[in-house]
Design a protein around this nucleic acid. Structure first.
Lengths: 220, 220
DNA sequence: CTACATTGACTGAATGTTCAGTCTAGAAAC
DNA sequence: GTTTCTAGACTGAACATTCAGTCAATGTAG
């Protein structure tokens, strides 16, 4: 129906995106190593041959899909945080993104992370996606801390040590949440993380009513 | 360990052990999903057919191998800790086991954990290995905390909250270490973990000279 | 305007390999 | 002589990738 300007090159990009999103869905369902080209093709409504036509190899497709997913996750988070005025509030949002599945897309992200880590061991391309993602994430945290310190919200901790520690803590909790560990539900993970952050950074945190958390998560 | 008189049942058990250890080595090298029966057989110096004879299926072999590895790791740790008198010392040993590769076997464990997590998502047998392993581990930590509190070494924190938080922190750091993250070396991970533990439990920790850490790790 | 050429998107049917698991039969233990 | 172990050869299915070409759109020369 739409012969918009851009035409050819445009549909090609759409196709790629379509396939990447399909790949992410399949990876979440079947896991990285069990994902077949045929699955992705079927999900995207095309043929295996076309998938290979766009991405030379299976690994390239899957790696690119992981990069795409991480970028999307990160961008969404950045947008969310940009809307929050106080550093403590932004920190809380950041923790919520890592712990609470209510934060829309999150649910599948954890599963992707597990695969991302496992594949990083042996696929250099994947390893580099992960390394960049992690650095960016810690950078986000530590500059948030610096901002909070300048604003007088936070005490004088080493921002990088804090970023490293919280991000590790959140990763560890994410594993438990992703795997439905019987003794760690998202709420508890959120609570423990916030208590840790508050004690380290020296701000008061008394928990928020679910109401308010909902509101913060749902704004667009 | 093994009585010589056993005969058949004995050699059968030896064979199993041999194959399980071979499987662990291969999983560390190639990753869980890429491990072939033929690899394990070759490593154990037998035929693929024999591997199937002992373990009905590939998944059974690999799952049992993971269980075997985790049990071995945990038992070794328990033995080490039993030899240390103070609660703070035992805690330090426990953190060292998770962070420092010097603690002999550890190096491969991290890689196994990544696979353990990733496979837990879809293989219930593996999930149950993981769940039990984690519970046991947190249990170890929290009873250590209680012991330390009774001995007056530690302040009054909630032992279970602490166990959950530290174990998550250690898991997160283990990921970085396993993947050779450029900004997290084992020493730093150890340092950050101990600082966290000390601040939470309210004991003094000033770091140990490498000398002493070596001694503690190398005892047999 | 028409015929022909070119190109990018796309497909169905091979191709070839890799493996988990089976089968058969021999050796060893009891 | 029966049961337990062991290995080499084999089978069948799964799958990534290749190939040979179709189709539609966009020039382009006469």
């Amino acid at each position: 129906m739409s012969e918009r300007a851009g035409g050819v090159a445009d549909t090609a990009d759409q196709r790629r995106g379509q396939m990447l999103r399909a790949a992410i869905e399949v990876i979440e369902e079947r896991g990285f190593p069990e994902t077949r080209i045929a699955d992705v093709a079927a999900r995207a409504g095309t043929s295996p041959a076309l998938v290979i036509y766009y991405f030379k190899t299976k690994d390239q497709l899957l790696t690119e899909a992981l990069r795409y997913a991480e970028d999307t996750w990160y961008e969404a988070g950045k947008r969310r945080m940009a809307a929050i005025p106080s550093a403590a509030g932004r920190l809380e949002e950041l923790v919520a993104m890592s712990c609470l599945p209510e934060a829309d897309q999150a649910a599948g992200s954890w599963l992707l992370w597990l695969d991302l880590w496992a594949q990083s061991v042996r696929l250099p391309e994947v390893a580099s996606v992960r390394q960049k993602f992690d650095e960016r994430w810690r950078q986000t945290i530590s500059s948030l801390v610096l901002a909070g310190q300048e604003a007088g919200e936070f005490g004088p901790v080493n921002a990088e040590d804090f970023a490293l520690t919280v991000s590790a803590l959140l990763d560890g909790l994410a594993v438990q949440i992703a795997l439905h560990d019987t003794s760690v539900d998202p709420e508890r993970a959120f609570e423990l993380s916030m208590r840790f952050a508050a004690s380290q950074l020296g701000f008061d945190w008394a928990g928020r009513p679910a109401q308010e958390r909902m509101t913060a998560s749902q704004r667009d």
